[in-house]
Simulated scan of single mutants.
Amino acid sequence: MDISFWKHHPVSDQHGYQLAQEALAFQNTFQFDFLKLTPAGDWLAVCYGAKDEVWENDPVGRRKITSFPLKENKDFYNLKNFSFQEKLLVEIFKALQICCTQVKVPVYATIFCPLSQLIQISGIDLFLKTAQTDPEAIDAALDVIIYNTKKVIEKASEIGVKGLYYVTQHMQPDILSLEIYKQFGKSSDETCLLKAADFFDSIIFHLHGNDCFACISENIPKLSIHCTYNQIQTINSKSIEESGYPIIYGLPANTLSKVNNEQDCKEILENFPLNTLLTCECVLPLDFPNEKINFWKKACK
């Protein structure tokens, strides 16, 4: 079984060289089976004009969006194709390139799905209002975001990235209904994932949150679904099980942290549905102890 964990690197995640050095130091400490570069989750939204100046000491290192570039319906029609001179785009590609040249294991890029990117630049309230009153505006914005996301995928492959960690934050019913996702997100995800399958050796589709749903088609090569394990069987969790894809259940941070030795890890692993990868449910807390990562690595190997 492979193992890989990752952390955010707030402050450093705004600068390519510094982000790469932190990611490489973490990888060199533990020698995971792959390195996932973890930029700020809104890094592509920032390239459209979102502002995220604030990191408010979030325990896992997330930054807070402070200003949305889309203010009204008409703004959805005015998104532009990336020039690839956008500052943060340049920095993250620099970090990816450094990592690809410095490690022998595969490097994974983190890319949020088009629908999540759009909500990051509009805010959920404006998105839902526009979806109801002017769905063509949503489609127009998604067309541009899909194009840009596919270009990001291509360019990441060109510099040596071997895997994709593809993220949705909104496939959960307390944020978006399944019907809204099917209307606006399903085809955009399938388009980007099929594109990624042409360029990468592996794709991990991370469904962020609890009780997420899955409804993508079953013909996307190289794809695994990564999600939180929901011990209570629901319609949504059943949809993931029936998706036709391998499932990677990430261990929650509170489960990962309560171990004190390798035997504790083994006892948890015996009762947890694992596939080919041992990892966290999303991202490790910034203060997660190194010795506990070592317990898990030894138990896994």
Rank of each mutant, 00 (worst) to 15 (best):
I216C: 12
N219D: 15
N219G: 03
N219F: 10
I220Q: 13
I220E: 07
I220T: 10
P221S: 06
P221E: 10
K222F: 05
K222Y: 04
L223E: 00
S224I: 00
I225W: 06
H226M: 03
C227Y: 12
C227M: 13
T228R: 02
T228G: 00
Y229R: 02
N230F: 02
N230L: 08
Q231K: 14
I232Y: 13
I232H: 11
I232A: 09
I232S: 12
Q233C: 11
Q233K: 15
Q233F: 06
Q233R: 15
T234Y: 04
I235A: 07
I235H: 08
I235E: 11
N236M: 06
N236E: 08
K238C: 12
S239R: 08
S239I: 10
I240S: 04
I240L: 08
E241H: 08
E242C: 07
E242N: 13
S243R: 07
S243A: 10
S243K: 07
G244V: 03
Y245I: 09
Y245W: 08
Y245M: 04
P246D: 14
P246I: 03
P246G: 05
P246K: 07
P246T: 05
I247Q: 02
I248Y: 07
I248E: 03
Y249C: 00
Y249R: 06
G250D: 02
G250L: 05
G250M: 10
L251Q: 00
P252S: 10
A253T: 14
A253F: 14
N254W: 14
N254A: 15
T255R: 05
T255H: 06
